[in-house]
Nucleic acid binder design. Structure first.
Lengths: 108, 108
DNA sequence: TAGATGGTTCGAACATATTCGAACCATAGG
DNA sequence: CCTATGGTTCGAATATGTTCGAACCATCTA
């Protein structure tokens, strides 16, 4: 079947609106950092993105994504009935050079 | 007069105990980041460390320092009746290479 | 030893973040 | 259609962080 045009698209900050404080705060949480680490090697479907704690309700998971998205760390776009998550690597690199790599590298 | 041995020394985490999340959180606040930026070029006396908001009570200022200290970002040692603040650059660099520089550089 | 200076700590008020169930929405597939 | 799947959103409860005055402590100077 054809790929549907997503009707539910969430707001993302423009690259030049991304705030350092918001990014650092978003990354300061273990669960959120874990998500970011999973996106390291490319986009993944949200349904395939598993947290360390397997019993996290979907509303909580959704909220974690929201904080990361609103901070400008990840992109969250609808595809089919699911969602594709991806790191905003280039934009973060342009705005805060070396920051994301340093964090990802620090985390192991 | 002789330099007194400080009787009030505050607890600092060991280098290997410094947590990435705590560091990122500590740096995610504008006022705390401002303090860190002031320490960029070397230690300064706490009394000479001025925040953007000049009307911050000393208890609030002390709390900001506490968060940075307990995260392992700064050192806070007594000297005379005041205190000397310094960045834990080497230790942070050893533990999270490039992180502090990236943050300081991002902040401008 | 008294007073001024520079700071920490405590407690209470307030603000902000997190968690999670329930309700809701959209899409894919039968 | 109907139903299952994958997700967002809302609201309320809870947890965590912030702010600031008051009290306190140590040091220097007179």
């Amino acid at each position: 079947m054809q790929q549907a045009t997503p009707s539910t698209d969430l707001p993302h900050p423009d690259a030049d609106e991304i705030q350092l404080g918001a990014v650092l705060f978003a990354l300061s949480d273990p669960a959120r950092l874990e998500i970011v680490a999973q996106l390291r090697d490319g986009p993944i479907e949200m349904a395939r993105c598993h947290l360390n704690d397997p019993d996290v309700p979907k509303s909580t998971k959704s909220h974690l994504m929201k904080v990361l998205r609103e901070a400008g760390v990840i992109r969250n776009v609808a595809q089919g009935r699911g969602r594709i998550l991806s790191l905003r690597r280039e934009e973060l690199e342009q705005r805060f050079p070396g920051l994301l790599d340093a964090v990802l590298n620090a985390r192991g």
